[in-house]
Write a protein that binds this DNA or RNA. Structure first.
Lengths: 329, 329
DNA sequence: GACATAACTGAAATCGATTTCACATACACA
DNA sequence: TGTGTATGTGAAATCGATTTCAGTTATGTC
């Protein structure tokens, strides 16, 4: 069913049908009703692709995620889809599976008027990214990393990590181990570590390199890094920069015959869904990822109207979740 | 940059540029090179929307999910995107947030030649669904529920649940409580319960209604249902039809001063990522959701080539994961 | 050298909508 | 009764690609 068919059935021209559908221009009441009746009878829905071509907008938002199957990404996408739907938009998912080249390919592809706006959950933003982003004709919002000149929505990594560290200090911990990730990830790798270091310095606590370990994002890495630290010394507390790393650390401690939190306290960052159901329930920092997704989408719609507003950095809130994985010394 | 511009720059007609891009028809080697050079110089990428309109396919797959932020859904989507990418396809996410009306709206919208194939992760398939699905012109694959006349990919809910129950029986449990969900969800609500009942019957174990509770899908429900069962009697084992329900049950047991597994054994179904890191690690059934997503996508591509093949039911495998949450009596 | 066939090319039609433009009719006001 | 404005309508152009069709040139075969 094309608009031509509707026009024929209603005894009018395609132009009139279009006017009825889009509710603009003059249409005599009788004809309007005739058209609406036909539309209803045959359950006509206009071809969105033809509309996109003519209107020069696709009514689609592109979301580039490093790995859709993570809790963080899927919550962000949930937020984005919610806002998108409210604007009558669809969401196109570009799942890069942590492949940087794919990320750039998708940026190019999506930029190509195939979506009206892009939300990128970045881990690493390279010069290659910037080169492609510079040529983008649709607005883009970066989520999770701060990129100069582009609108970014960042989690308050510094304050979150600082608050978490400070919390341990205030529970009288002094031997606080650190399990982090590679510095390629600016927000998690660099910022969260800096906050840890700054906090220790502010409280005049010696920083001990051998109590610090760096690795990947997964639970296994948390386990191994914890083992590595234990082989040197048993700290009284451990700050892991993600909850998954914290889970790995807890298991390494348990396997080493230590009790959490009685022998060693452990905290994470992120507040994954199951954090409160772990044993012990994990003390961590709660980020509102779904809200970040909503913010990102709303900001993209903002930018679609006012492209010159590009460049702001918005910061999401966080909340300390104190649970049973920390002991007061 | 449109194809016309490329044509002008290369001194040929748009038709020739198209022939070069799509590698069909005759093009003299020199012209081909000239065109390719221009394409490369200006980094030309054809407008996918115009292509979709002309080619009558969008190179997009639509995925309707009840809730993208669940582990199951996001893993399925991960599988779908992987296969889609291999076929040069994009993935459109329709997140219904468990709203049945939205599900039907999306079906209508997507059917409208806006995607070339649909994958629906259904919970409940109503007559309204069927009415819309009947009119669909693009292939559809239903994931997680069996729907007559349509290609479905189902998890082997019956065998999984039966195997899980039988496992408990073989560990000499006889008082096996059951925590299920509403029957609106055919696969989880009906099939998994039937398997439990059949297994008990086959082993001549009396079924006790008061050891069975039905509710929603979340952890809290698991907690409450377990409390309800405990108020009647303390069973020796509990079968929860999802891992989340199992987690809720475990917490209710712990809060009631009972030990898992020494006082009560608990098993789930689904094997969420953290199942093995829970305390105790949860005995459950592992489903390959990402693989299901891949299968679904591959099947859709199959159906795009051979629409007459519609109607098959494919079953995914599962694997019993025996961990420490069960004790031998 | 004649004729068939292959190689090559671009103008124009097409996909399905929207919008401009030109034109027609109705209505108001002097 | 004329003139200006509001109302109403459809033919045709347009969005950016692909493809058919008709026509031209090159190549091969007898």
């Amino acid at each position: 069913m094309r608009i031509k068919d509707i026009a024929r059935l209603a005894g009018v021209s395609p132009a009139t049908v279009s006017r009825v559908m889009n509710n603009n221009g003059y249409v005599k009441e009788e004809k309007r009703e005739a058209v609406l009746k036909v539309i209803k009878d045959v359950d006509y829905q206009p071809n969105p692709i033809a509309q996109s071509l003519k209107n020069q907008k696709s009514q689609m938002l592109g979301v580039i995620v490093p790995k859709i199957s993570t809790e963080t990404a899927s919550r962000v996408v949930a937020g984005v889809t919610e806002v998108a739907r409210a604007h009558g938009y669809q969401v196109l998912i570009a799942n890069t599976d942590l492949d940087i080249d794919e990320e750039i390919n998708y940026l190019k592809f999506l930029s190509n008027k195939s979506v009206d706006g892009i939300i990128m959950m970045g881990t690493e933003v390279t010069d290659q990214h910037l080169a492609v982003m510079d040529k983008l004709i649709v607005p883009i919002v970066i989520l999770g990393q701060k990129v100069k000149g582009y609108t970014s929505i960042v989690h308050n990594d510094y304050d979150a990590s600082y608050t978490m560290t400070e919390y341990l200090v205030k529970q009288n911990h002094r031997d606080i181990a650190f399990i982090g990730v590679d510095e390629k990830d600016e927000a998690v790798g660099i910022v969260r570590k800096k906050a840890y270091l700054d906090c220790l310095n502010n409280y005049k606590i010696d920083v001990n390199d051998r109590l610090m370990a760096i690795g990947d994002f997964d639970i296994d890495t948390g386990y191994q890094m914890m083992q590595k630290i234990l082989s040197y010394k048993t700290p009284t507390a451990v700050l892991a920069v993600t909850d998954h790393l914290a889970i790995g650390a807890i298991h390494a401690l348990l396997d080493a015959g230590l009790d959490v939190p009685n022998d060693v306290s452990v905290v994470g960052i992120g507040d994954i869904k199951l954090a409160e159901y772990l044993n012990p329930p994990l003390t961590t920092v709660h980020y509102t990822f779904k809200t970040s997704g909503k913010m990102a989408a709303e900001t993209v719609f903002e930018l679609m109207k006012n492209p010159e507003k590009q460049g702001d950095t918005l910061m999401t809130t966080f909340e300390l979740k104190t649970r049973a994985s920390v002991r007061v010394l």
